Amino acid sequence: MNSADHVSFDGLHAAEYPIQKGVHAVGIVWYGNYLYVADTRGGLRVFDMRFILDLDLDPDADPATHDRMGTDTDGVKTTANVEDKTKVGRHDNVWYSFGYRYVMPQVAAWKFKATQSNPKGSCACVSTGAPKASYISLDRSTGPDRLLMGEYCRPESGYPSTGRIASYPVAALEGRSADVTAEGRANYLPLANGGAQGAAAYNGTLYVNESKGTDEPGNLWRYRWNDGRLVQHGQAVKTARGAEDLYVERGTGRLWSLSEHRPGSDDDCKLNPGPGDREGTDYCQRVLFAHELSWLDSRP
């Protein structure tokens, strides 16, 4: 219901300002009927793939006509507006959808029980309390299947944490009836400068993407477990600038990732081409790429 007690819907909101004014979705896993979305300070949001709604607010395919939607459940006749992409839901008897046709409702959320003490507006982290949910992946390397989730941290004075990583059994998350305890992979990442933006596990190896921003290529690290601790396995493999989440495509033996930076998104990515230069620079283009796992595992 909206503030006028009309049947409606609304966009998702979260307190991320000044880093993000809305929900900061930083990773997605589709498992069974559910889509799990990591929300930096909010934990996990859960969406049901079986309930994707076709709003069809523009049945005549002419955005300018503002089609009639008929009589709503409260007896009021409503219209639609798909031109205004700043609103969602029902406002003054007009339906909006941010300009989109389809909506998928959030059906649940997982919140950390501990207090979120990480400072807002900063990438620094404390070593206690609720972690940030900065990236997730599906871990099928051991049974039962788990969601692997970690936090992005940049250590600074008073905030030494390099980031924590943990796993949660998907079956327990699907139950949504009791607390779910982090298990199996609860650890601090052994990254001197932090910066982990993605992790995935396969055949006993934990792969972690370390972003170095736009300044230089990132690092792809490999770790093994030894007496409950993460131990570095081999040297870092250079990867894309701003490398983020990781995904194991088991059927092909590939480890997929993507980079976040784009021209104009950061000071180092401003478009200032000189005479004869093409617009932009290579390292400021977003890319989707994959590593062969067999090649990665053969690196020294």
Score class of each variant (00 low, 15 high):
residue 66 H to N: 08
residue 176 R to Q: 14
residue 89 G to V: 01
residue 170 V to D: 03
residue 261 H to M: 15
residue 32 G to C: 03
residue 298 S to W: 06
residue 36 Y to D: 04
residue 84 D to C: 06
residue 289 F to Q: 06
residue 25 A to H: 11
residue 64 A to P: 02
residue 129 G to H: 09
residue 281 T to N: 09
residue 120 K to C: 01
residue 188 Y to I: 04
residue 128 T to R: 11
residue 68 R to N: 15
residue 93 N to A: 10
residue 223 Y to I: 01
residue 217 P to Y: 05
residue 122 S to N: 12
residue 264 G to N: 09
residue 240 A to P: 00
residue 196 A to V: 01
residue 77 K to T: 11
residue 278 R to C: 03
residue 2 N to T: 03
residue 200 A to T: 05
residue 254 R to A: 13
residue 296 L to K: 13
residue 10 D to I: 09
residue 151 E to K: 02
residue 273 P to S: 08
residue 240 A to S: 06
residue 266 D to P: 00
residue 5 D to W: 15
residue 270 K to V: 09
residue 204 G to A: 02
residue 296 L to Q: 13
residue 147 L to E: 04
residue 22 G to N: 11
residue 265 S to N: 13
residue 55 L to C: 02
residue 180 V to A: 00
residue 233 H to W: 10
residue 75 G to W: 15
residue 207 Y to D: 01
residue 77 K to H: 15
residue 4 A to Q: 15
residue 210 E to N: 05
residue 133 A to K: 03
residue 188 Y to W: 10
residue 189 L to A: 06
residue 55 L to K: 07
residue 155 P to K: 11
residue 143 G to V: 05
residue 4 A to K: 10
residue 292 E to T: 11
residue 298 S to P: 01
residue 201 A to Q: 07
residue 117 S to T: 14
residue 230 L to I: 02
residue 119 P to F: 14
residue 220 L to M: 08
residue 73 T to A: 12
residue 174 E to L: 14
residue 242 G to T: 00
residue 131 P to Q: 04
residue 32 G to T: 06
residue 188 Y to T: 07
residue 140 R to Y: 08
residue 203 N to T: 01
residue 274 G to N: 07
residue 13 H to F: 08
residue 9 F to T: 00
residue 42 G to Y: 08
residue 146 R to W: 04
residue 280 G to L: 07
residue 134 S to L: 07
residue 168 Y to K: 00
residue 199 A to G: 04
residue 232 Q to P: 05
residue 151 E to T: 09
residue 245 D to G: 12
residue 13 H to Q: 09
residue 143 G to L: 12
residue 68 R to L: 11
residue 118 N to Q: 09
residue 185 R to Q: 09
residue 86 T to C: 01
residue 174 E to I: 01
residue 139 D to M: 00
residue 19 I to T: 05
residue 46 V to D: 10
residue 57 L to T: 00
residue 87 K to P: 00
residue 241 R to Y: 05
residue 97 S to Q: 03
residue 211 S to P: 00
residue 46 V to C: 04
residue 127 S to M: 06
residue 147 L to Y: 10
residue 19 I to D: 11
residue 111 K to M: 03
